[in-house]
Structures are given as C-alpha cells and as structure tokens.
Design a protein around this nucleic acid. Sequence first.
DNA 1: AAGTCGTGGCT
DNA 2: TAGCCAAGACT
Length: 401
Amino acid sequence: MTVAAPPPGRKTSRAARAAEPSPGALAAALLGWYDRHRRVLPWRAPPGVKADPYAVWLSEIMLQQTTVKAVVPYFQKFTAAFPTVRDLAEAELDSVLRLWAGLGYYARARNLHACAKVLVDRYGGVFPRSVEELRALPGIGAYTANAVASIAFDLPVVPIDGNVERVLTRVHAVEEMLPAAKPRVTALAEALEPSDRPGDFAQALMDLGATICTPKAPACVLCPWAEPCLARRRGDPETFPVKAPKREGLLRRGAAFVAVRADGAVLVRTRVAEGLLGGMTEVPTGAWSGDHDEATSLDHAPDLGVARRQWRRVPGVVTHVFTHFPLELLVFVADVADRIAAPGGMRWIARKDLAGEAFPSLMRKVIAHAGIDLRPGEAPSGDAPAHAQKPDPTKTNRRRR
DNA sequence: AAGTCGTGGCT
DNA sequence: TAGCCAAGACT
C-alpha cells in the first residue's frame, strides 16, 4: 500500500494520482498504527475486550470540548461515586453538579443526569444499540451517538469530532471552510470506514488527531497517512481545517459579595437551573454588564442588615474568560455575626462544606480572592479569620499600572 | 443557523 | 502573553 513519496517541488503527476491508496488500504494502515500506538485511557477497553457502554457514554459526554487531561480525574470520581447508570439516575442532580463542578459546560451534567433517568425508566438501564435511539437521548448529539454506537457496539458509523475534521481536511486538503465543509468531511469519513473494527477505526482517527495530526506542528514523519496526505504534500498542513474567524465578546463587569460569619460559614445561593452556570452555587453578585458602575457596586450587596461600610473591597479584581465574553468581578467581603439570618433564597455554607459545594471555577476564584482557602481540611486555625489570609498572588489579578 | 454555553493548558 | 482551542449539544 506504500506510495513512493513525490519528488520535492513536484506537481501532482498522473502516475502519483493513480497510485493513491485505496480506502481499504488507508483504513488498514490506520488500524495498524492504532494497534501499535493506541492511548491507554481509563474508559478504554484493552484490545479485544468489549467496551462498557456506560464508561464510553460517560467519557464521551465529559470529553465534549474538553481535554483528556481535564477529564481523567472527573471520570474517576464519577465512576467511583456512580458505578452504574442506575446509581447515577438515582442520585440527586445537586450531587452530580457538585462532582462536575470545575469541568465546565454544566448543561452536560444536567443532561447526563436526565439521560441516566431516561435510560433507567425507559430502557431498564441498558443502552439502546441504535444510532437513532441514542441520538434521541438528552445530551447526545450526532457526534456522541456515533461515538457510542461505534466504540461500544461496533456499529459501522464514524463520529466526526474536531480531530476527525482536522485529519480528513488535511489528508484531502479541503479548502472549503468549516462548518460548511462538514457534509464533505462526513462523506470522506464514511468512504474510509472499514467493514470490520468500526470502534477501533473511530478511536484510531481520534488518537491520530490528538497525538500526531495536532493543530500545531503535526508530527507528519510519524503519521501512517503521511504519503497520501495532500496537506503534507503541499507543505502547509497547519492551514487546515479552514475556519471562520470568531469575534470576541465584550467585557462585562460586576461585583461579588462574600459574607463570612464568625464561625466561618459563607453566604451562597443557587443559580437558576438553565443558562450560564445553571444550577451551580454562587456567592451573591450584582448584574454582569458592560457598563457596571463601581461607585454603585454596594447597591447590589445582599441585605444582611449590616452597615455599608462593613463591606470592604478586596484589592485587585477577579478575571474570568467565558467562551463568549470576558468578565471582571470586584470582590467585597463582610464579617457578620453568627446570628445573622440568610436573606430569602440564600443559605449559609459551613466552612468545612465549602470544598464540596457546586462552585464553578469562577466562584472558586472569587472565594480565593476573598482570602478563603476552599481546600478540604484547611480550616483556619486560631484567631485569624480565614479571609484575613493574604490573597494568593498567583490566583489574583491585580490591576496593572 | 448563529449564538450560547466553561475551563485550563498550551504556544 | 494573549490568543487558540479540546472527543459538541442545544436552541
């Protein structure tokens, strides 16, 4: 199946074109590479062993727009806490969100839980074995349906993710812009699908994209598809895939309020179930807007019946970048008495329970900026209030100049 | 169908 | 450093 490398500075000759490997040969080369270089991942079954649909599904949901490195510890936590789909279905949503906290895209956790319930209620806890039924489940789109179908059930379908798009647009030098080129990429993938080992083929394509055909500085010399790859022949593999430039979001600002009781408890509330950080825990904040007025920040403080001057501004600002907008939060801290009641819709969280709360990363930054260490087993010792600790300069963004 | 939806690691 | 972007889904 090996094709002679074209001479340097070549034009694609008729002979070279005629010698292009067949789809079957390409698939065989990729599977051979996979057998030698497949990654060992916690959710991946050893060679020759059937994959566990639950592990495949859980990992695929976690891996949506998320790196393997970030997912691994979460996958471990989830499988330990919820060994089966039924365990997950029977859990409270809040306990799922607490375990998911920090991984981002929290709709995935809500849909994960909803999906587990449907699987138990309607499928007896057994994953359906068709793409159509999988696709109809909460949180499972075209990609994940194909991923589960191929990896867990060896159905002959190809999940098209960012890796596969990159590999195929490079091999074929697809100049059409994504996502417009998506149908073409799908066709290219389907043309390569081998009659056997669909699950390995899918994973091989993704491993190739993740370890060899990387966005920057692809390791073409190690690639099983180096010779037929048109992008490599052209010498500019990094230019593929062609994507439309995305415009940046506008900066939003706001104020966050960390009320700390004498016993160390912190005032929090739960965000609405849908939308940004839906269902997650937060300290009270004012609105996040492009025209936040610092002078009136305290107007948005929770009503604890304390004087305005009890709120002291922590120097610096917490910055956070969401996918579609950057955010700057001023942080105010107030020490209040133990007897102060939580305003409606809010509650006090004991110091020892802070680490386990469903705080998204943004809120962990805010709380850390306020001088509170969320790490479990790090209760403040002695007289100094927890928030009197010096803010960690590595996690705090002081205003420059 | 284009906008919404997180986060951290990498270059 | 400042952008880029990772095994996308949903509306």
